[in-house]
C-alpha cells in the first residue's frame, strides 16, 4: 500500500511542482511584495505593512475601478449566462435543424475574432463623428442621441462592456447548447404530458438540468470580469479621466506609469481574493443544489 502511494506521489509530483512554481509561488510572492513600497528604478524596498491596502481604500480610482468590474460581472452574468441560456434553449427547441446550424455559426463568429481586433473595430463603430453607431442613430431619426460613446466619462465603460458581451455571447451560447442537448428528452415529454408550457418547462427542466454548466460559466464570467484588461486598454486606456479603469488596468497603470509596484501588488492581491471568493462561493452553492442527471 505504502509503495503504491509512493508511486502515485511520484507521478503527481512533477505536476505539483510546476503548479507550485508557476501558480502558488507567484501568489505568495505577490502578497509579500504588497507589504513593501518600492520602485523598479531605485535600490531598496521599504516595509510598510498594510499601508498599500490603506492606500487602496482611500483611492477613489480604486473604488471606481472595482465598481466598473462589478458592472462588468453583473452584465456578463445576465447576458453570457442568462440570455445565452434562453437563446440556447430557443435554438434547440424552436428553430429548425438547418437554420439552427447557420445561427450557431453566426453567433459564434465574434468569439473567433481577436480581442484587439474587436476592440479596434468597436472603436471605429463608436467614433463620434464618422462612426457607424452615431450614423445609424442619425439615419433613423435619433440624431439627438448621438454621443461620444468612449469619450464621455458616463458611457465609456459601457461601450467596452457592450463590446465584450458581443464577443463572448455566442461562445457561452454554444457551451449551453451542448448542455441542453444532453438533457434526456423523456423529461421534456413528461413535462408536456403534465401540462407544462414552454416557459415552465424551461424553468423546471432546462435550468436545473444545466446547473453544472451554468455554475461553471458563472465562475468563468465573474472571474473573467475581474481579470478584464485587454479590451479596456485597447479601447479607452482606462480614460477619459479614469472613468473606464478596471482593477487590472489600474494595477498596470500604478505599476508602469506610477512606478508604485507595492501598491500594484496590493491591487493584484485584492483581485485574487475576489476571484477566489467568487469561485469558492459558487462551487459551494452548486454542490448543495446539485441535481443528479
Amino acid at each position: 500500500m505504502t509503495r503504491r502511494r509512493i508511486r502515485h506521489a511520484f507521478y503527481v509530483a512533477p505536476a505539483l511542482a510546476l503548479i507550485a512554481l508557476f501558480v502558488y509561488y507567484p501568489i505568495v510572492e505577490n502578497v509579500r511584495l504588497s507589504l513593501f513600497k518600492f520602485s523598479v528604478f531605485r535600490p531598496g524596498m521599504r516595509y510598510v505593512g498594510l499601508e498599500n491596502y490603506r492606500q487602496a481604500f482611500q483611492d477613489p480610482v480604486f473604488w471606481h475601478a472595482l465598481l466598473n468590474n462589478v458592472f462588468y460581472a453583473v452584465t456578463s452574468v445576465v447576458f453570457q449566462v442568462g440570455a445565452a441560456l434562453v437563446l440556447a434553449a430557443v435554438l434547440e427547441e424552436l428553430i429548425g435543424r438547418r437554420l439552427r446550424g447557420v445561427l450557431r455559426a453566426v453567433y459564434f463568429i465574434p468569439a473567433a475574432v481577436s480581442m484587439t481586433v474587436a476592440g479596434l473595430l468597436f472603436q471605429f463603430l463608436y467614433q463620434p463623428d464618422a462612426g457607424l453607431v452615431n450614423s445609424a442613430l442619425d439615419a433613423v431619426g435619433l440624431g439627438g442621441l448621438q454621443h461620444d460613446w468612449l469619450g464621455d466619462a458616463a458611457t465609456s465603460i459601457w461601450g467596452v462592456i457592450n463590446m465584450s458581451q458581443w464577443q463572448s455571447f455566442g461562445y457561452t451560447t454554444m457551451l449551453l447548447t451542448v448542455a441542453v442537448q444532453r438533457i434526456p428528452r423523456e423529461l421534456y415529454e413528461a413535462a408536456t404530458v403534465d401540462g407544462a408550457g414552454r416557459i415552465r418547462t424551461f424553468f423546471h427542466v432546462t435550468v436545473p438540468m444545466v446547473r453544472d454548466m451554468t455554475t461553471l460559466l458563472i465562475i468563468l464570467t465573474v472571474s473573467g470580469a475581474f481579470l478584464v484588461f485587454n479590451e479596456v486598454m485597447v479601447m479607452t486606456g482606462g480614460g477619459p479621466a479614469n472613468s473606464s479603469q478596471v482593477l487590472g488596468t489600474w494595477l498596470y497603470t500604478s505599476a508602469f506609469t506610477g512606478d508604485d509596484m507595492g501598491y500594484a501588488a496590493a491591487i493584484g492581491t485584492v483581485i485574487f481574493l475576489i476571484t477566489f471568493a467568487a469561485g469558492a462561493l459558487q462551487l459551494l452553492h452548486s454542490r448543495r443544489k446539485a441535481v443528479a442527471p
Partner: peptide, 20 residues
C-alpha cells in the same frame, strides 16, 4: 512625479469633457 501624472491627465480629461 509619476503619481501626479495620472491625476493631472485625468483632470485635463474632465475639463475637456465638461465634467469639471
Amino acid at each position: 512625479d509619476d503619481k501626479i501624472v495620472n491625476p493631472y491627465l485625468a483632470a485635463a480629461d474632465s475639463v475637456l469633457g465638461g465634467n469639471a
